[in-house]
């Protein structure tokens, strides 16, 4: 019955997801693994999982060089900067754009889902994006802050 402001709720989930993504990509750099390598992969003891040659490109950008993890981390930091927000971004049109967040979160989700540690971050950022889309369809806006806020009369 109360009026839920979806982008307020989504902000917290988005923050959680992006912080998780940064943390996960850090560990993803230390322990590199392509999430989907079990497809066509062979399990050997000893030696562990041998990925299929068909996914070699992913092995290159995740295991050989942690490009995906680095992209995830950068995206994660961008979203945190936008959501928290970074003081310089506060109140700018960029900061108040819900659509931008949806785009960034879906991007984050699609890179995070590629490496082993990133799946939860991928799922959560997808949830956050869904909630933001919900906010957009309901016509919610992030209002410009009122200029004359914080008077002494308040209390």
């Amino acid at each position: 019955m109360g009026k839920l402001i979806w982008h307020d709720l989504s902000r917290y989930i988005s923050l959680t997801a992006s912080i998780y993504a940064v943390w996960a990509s850090f560990w993803g750099i230390l322990f590199r693994k392509f999430f989907w390598d079990f497809i066509g992969g062979v399990l050997r003891a000893p030696g562990g999982l041998q990925p299929s040659p068909k996914v070699a490109i992913f092995i290159t950008i995740i295991v050989k060089f942690p490009l995906i993890q680095i992209i995830t981390m950068v995206l994660g930091f961008i979203i945190i900067a936008l959501e928290y927000p970074l003081p310089v971004l506060k109140g700018t049109a960029l900061h108040r754009s819900i659509a931008l967040r949806v785009v960034l979160l879906i991007q984050l989700s699609s890179v995070a889902v590629l490496f082993y540690q990133g799946t939860n971050a991928a799922l959560w950022s997808l949830i956050a994006a869904t909630f933001y889309i919900r906010a957009l369809t309901l016509g919610e806006r992030m209002e410009e802050p009122k200029k004359d806020k914080g008077q002494v009369e308040e209390a």
Partner: peptide, 16 residues
């Protein structure tokens, strides 16, 4: 996440 990564790598238990 580190544990299971290493389980798979070292095959302490034979599983993904």
């Amino acid at each position: 996440y580190v544990n299971f990564f290493n389980v798979e790598r070292t095959q302490v238990r034979a599983e993904y």
